[in-house]
C-alpha cells in the first residue's frame, strides 16, 4: 500500500495562545480506515481541518499524494481539496438548496469557476449523484429542500457530497456526535461501506471507543494535542483507553457528547 498522506511535526497555536496540536507525526496509507479518538478539546477537529487547511497550521509539513499542502498556492489548494472529501458534525448543508444540489457541490472543485457558479453540472455527474443518494436510501428525498430532512438524513446527504468528489481521502469530523444511536449506525455503515468499496482512505474523529473499534482498521489516540496511541483496534486495551480519556471517562461510551449535554 502506498503512502497517501504524510504529516510531520504538525503544530497549531491559536492566537489566544492555546496549543491545539503539538508536533503530530502521522502517515496514512491508501485504503486505511483510521479512527481518531480522544476527549473533546484534545485537538482532533483541528488535526482534520489542518489537513485541508480549513485551519492554517502554525508549523510542520503536510504532504498529500506527493504535494506539499502546507505550501500550496490557492489554486493548488483547491485541487488538493477536490481530492479530499469532508463530513461534518453539524452536516453543514446549504439549507435552502435541494438535496441533489447539495450533493453536486462535491463536483465544484472539478469545474471552472463560472460553470460552477451557474450550476452547469454534467448529466454524468447528476446521474452519479442520484445513484449515490439511492445507495444511502434517500431516493425519495432527492428534490426535497435540505432543511426538510431529519438529522440522520442530512448526514447521509453530507456523506454523499463527500463521495461525489470521488476523493482519495475522506475526513469525517465527529459524523455521529449529533445523532441518535440508530441513525449513527446507518451513517457509520454508509461511510465505512463506501470507503471500502471504492478504496478511499478515511480519517474519522470519534468520541466513542466502541464505535472506533467496530469499524476502524487502525486507531489513533490524541490527548492535549499529542498522539498518545497508534495501533490496530485489538491493541487498544482498556488500559490505553483509560489513559486517553483520563479525567473525561464519561465520553468514552456511545453518544458521549450527547450524554454530556443531557446531564450537564
Amino acid at each position: 500500500m502506498s503512502t497517501l498522506l504524510e504529516i510531520k511535526g504538525l503544530t497549531k497555536k491559536y492566537s489566544a495562545g492555546t496549543i491545539a496540536l503539538n508536533g503530530i507525526d502521522l502517515q496514512v496509507k491508501s485504503k486505511e480506515f483510521i479512527a481518531v479518538i480522544g476527549p473533546s478539546g484534545a485537538g482532533k477537529s483541528t488535526l482534520l481541518r489542518c489537513i485541508n487547511r480549513l485551519v492554517e497550521p502554525s508549523s510542520g509539513s503536510i504532504e498529500f499524494e506527493g504535494d506539499r499542502v502546507d505550501q500550496a498556492s490557492a489554486r493548488e489548494l483547491r485541487r488538493v481539496r477536490s481530492n479530499i472529501g469532508m463530513i461534518f458534525q453539524h452536516y453543514n448543508l446549504v439549507n435552502r438548496l435541494s438535496v441533489l444540489e447539495n450533493v453536486l457541490h462535491g463536483r465544484l472543485g472539478y469545474m471552472s469557476s463560472i460553470a460552477g457558479m451557474f450550476s452547469r453540472y454534467s448529466e454524468e455527474d447528476k446521474k452519479k449523484s442520484i445513484a449515490l443518494l439511492h445507495k444511502v436510501g434517500l431516493e425519495n428525498e432527492i428534490y426535497k429542500r435540505a432543511d426538510e430532512l431529519s438529522g440522520g438524513q442530512k448526514q447521509r446527504v453530507g456523506v454523499c457530497r463527500a463521495l461525489a468528489q470521488q476523493p482519495r481521502l475522506i475526513l469525517a469530523d465527529e459524523p455521529i456526535a449529533s445523532l441518535d444511536p440508530k441513525s449513527s449506525a446507518i451513517v457509520m455503515d454508509a461511510i465505512h461501506r463506501n470507503c471500502v468499496e471504492q478504496g478511499i482512505a478515511c480519517l474519522v474523529n470519534l468520541h466513542q471507543v466502541e464505535v472506533a473499534k467496530q469499524y476502524a482498521s487502525r486507531i489513533i489516540g490524541i490527548k492535549n494535542g499529542m498522539m498518545v496511541f497508534d495501533g490496530p483496534p485489538e491493541a487498544l486495551t482498556d488500559y490505553y483507553a483509560a489513559l486517553i480519556y483520563e479525567g473525561k471517562e464519561s465520553q468514552m461510551y456511545a453518544g458521549g457528547e450527547q450524554q454530556d449535554r443531557r446531564y450537564a
Partner: peptide, 8 residues
C-alpha cells in the same frame, strides 16, 4: 435532469 428545489 433537473436539480433544484422547485418551489424555492
Amino acid at each position: 435532469i433537473p436539480i433544484s428545489h422547485k418551489a424555492t
